[in-house]
Amino acid sequence: MSESNGVLVRVENVEKNFQRGSEKVHVLSGLNLEVPDGTFLALMGPSGSGKSTLLNLIGGLDRPTTGSVEVGGDRIDKLSGRQLAAWRARHIGFIFQFYNLLPVLTAERNVELPLLLTHLSKSERRKHVETALDVVGLSHRTRHYPRQLSGGEQQRVGIARAIVTDPTLLLCDEPTGDLDRKSGDDILELLQALNRDHGKTIVMVTHDPHASARASHTVYLDKGQLSLEPPE
């Protein structure tokens, strides 16, 4: 991934509409965003304002109706579905509100999942998994199933899974939305450390001011547009 002028994510004139029955829903209208490399960006806004939609566009899970999305110099809105899948595997780590771990797999096998798409050998995969679980502070619970872990611990597994392939960009959709204050704070601290010590660029959707306070920058999404000021 080659960065252009230190900007990792560049969203230009993006419009995103959804068709809901006969009705057209305009979610993003002419939106622009630049995320410099190494940023920890918080994306705030009222429920239904399109935060997840924007995050999906940046992560290559969806394509804009019009406009361009460039990540690390790649015009990802131009990639085919198959190319996008391969691109995501290499460059993006997703972290979800409800952790979205596979209940049938242990923590370590959940973390291993993205590595199955690489050419790494079994022992190499194990080493990467150990490292990732170590970074999130879960080395002692590797053989546990998700249901045997607390919410905070499950989210740590989710983060380990997101960073195990060493992606440049972490995309988090309300990562603390389902956690109590204490666990939420721990997760935010972990994200900060990943940003600060491991150089990960992070875009985090949240509507918790407490969470956004941990980020280096905050932008607000309202009525399809971004602003640096919270909406009235």
Partner: peptide, 15 residues
């Protein structure tokens, strides 16, 4: 459904 979605988000191809 969600699990399959997560696998795809991770980069598992449709095939």
């Amino acid at each position: 459904t969600e699990e399959l979605g997560v696998l795809k988000a991770m980069g598992f191809s449709n095939g």
